[in-house]
Simulated assay, not measured.
Amino acid sequence: MDWDKIRLFYEVAEAGSFTRAGENLGLNQSSISRHISALEHDLKVPLFHRHARGLILTEHGEILFRTARDMLMRIEATRSRLDETSELPAGNLKVTATVGIGAIWLAKRVSEFLGVYPDVRIQLIVTNEELDLAMREADIAIRLRRPSQPDLIQRRLFTVHYHAYAARSYIERFGEPTSLEDLDKHRIVCLGGHQPAFILAVHQLSTMGRDPKDPRPGRFVVNDSLALRVAIESGAGIGMAPAYSMEGNPLVSRVLRDIETPTLDSYMVYPEELRSVARVQVFRDFLVAKAQRWDH
């Protein structure tokens, strides 16, 4: 099998269409289509079901896709090992973080790191799913619980404090709750959808002070923490959010200050085999320094 064709097949499968793959790779659609047809001819099996809305992998295509993904991960792991011979921080660093920490806390600070280490290139993957570091889906992860995977180095960063917030415009219109019972008279906005249970739990005002079997109905439920923050800012209702996402925000005020609210500890984790990699070491030290200033 021609590796160039396999790599092209992988990109097409990831994109879901010849058009999007062409845009990503800088190739025209007809050229990509010819290469995929040639690969199918070589293998003597169909790899895609073609329809008007895009491409769906066949059973044979699924097998080849998993193999191609494993090959790419092994190549990336080999590249990282080769880079370890350099004492200067350089090369690619794939970082994954939860949506809130990645898009708000880390994204605000990464420009400083890039300025100090111009030869390091960072790819940030923002997701609440725990990517497999052993399979090199990412080099470093920032997570809101201790890792369950073995052979991972872990370093606690800071405690994430969650509080109840409301837009100042909402308070002017509906008043400010002073007790959990008052929440029964207010609009509640919640994080929902397909999220880890422990993350959903810290966002739930609907059950605070209530029987979990009889929660307050959420007037607005959204599966993204950034969208939840915007909803709170715009006056959709009262919701839980991490302190780092609301600190200094002139549009909102913290409410229910006397109520005990949940916390989660954040951790930086990475595989043991990357311990001596220069770009991992400096990024670890950078995060730890930033976290120490924030941990209060």
Results as ranks from 00 to 15, higher is better:
residue 80 S to Q: 11
residue 123 Q to A: 13
residue 126 V to M: 06
residue 278 A to L: 08
residue 149 Q to V: 13
residue 42 D to S: 05
residue 231 A to C: 12
residue 131 L to K: 05
residue 55 L to M: 07
residue 147 P to E: 00
residue 235 G to H: 04
residue 122 I to K: 09
residue 157 L to Q: 01
residue 80 S to K: 05
residue 142 I to R: 00
residue 265 D to N: 10
residue 289 A to D: 10
residue 37 S to G: 07
residue 78 T to Y: 07
residue 1 M to L: 14
residue 251 L to Q: 03
residue 97 A to K: 00
residue 224 D to V: 14
residue 14 E to R: 15
residue 253 S to E: 07
residue 168 R to Q: 08
residue 237 G to S: 04
residue 19 T to W: 15
residue 29 Q to S: 13
residue 286 F to T: 05
residue 77 A to L: 12
residue 86 S to H: 11
residue 189 V to D: 02
residue 5 K to D: 15
residue 22 G to A: 14
residue 97 A to V: 00
residue 50 R to K: 06
residue 121 R to W: 08
residue 72 L to N: 14
residue 176 E to V: 03
residue 205 L to N: 08
residue 63 I to S: 12
residue 96 T to A: 02
residue 232 I to L: 10
residue 227 A to Y: 09
residue 95 V to Q: 03
residue 231 A to L: 14
residue 261 T to G: 01
residue 109 R to M: 11
residue 226 L to Y: 02
residue 142 I to M: 06
residue 45 V to F: 02
residue 265 D to L: 14
residue 66 R to N: 12
residue 224 D to M: 13
residue 146 R to L: 14
residue 164 A to Y: 01
residue 110 V to D: 10
residue 65 F to C: 05
residue 133 L to K: 09
residue 280 V to R: 01
residue 240 M to P: 00
residue 23 E to P: 08
residue 130 E to M: 09
residue 75 I to M: 15
residue 103 A to W: 04
residue 86 S to T: 10
residue 37 S to T: 15
residue 127 T to W: 00
residue 245 S to F: 09
residue 288 V to R: 01
residue 160 V to E: 10
residue 284 R to M: 13
residue 123 Q to S: 12
residue 55 L to F: 03
residue 247 E to F: 12
residue 100 G to R: 06
residue 28 N to F: 12
residue 93 L to M: 03
residue 32 I to Q: 03
residue 254 R to F: 08
residue 210 R to E: 12
residue 144 L to W: 02
residue 76 E to F: 09
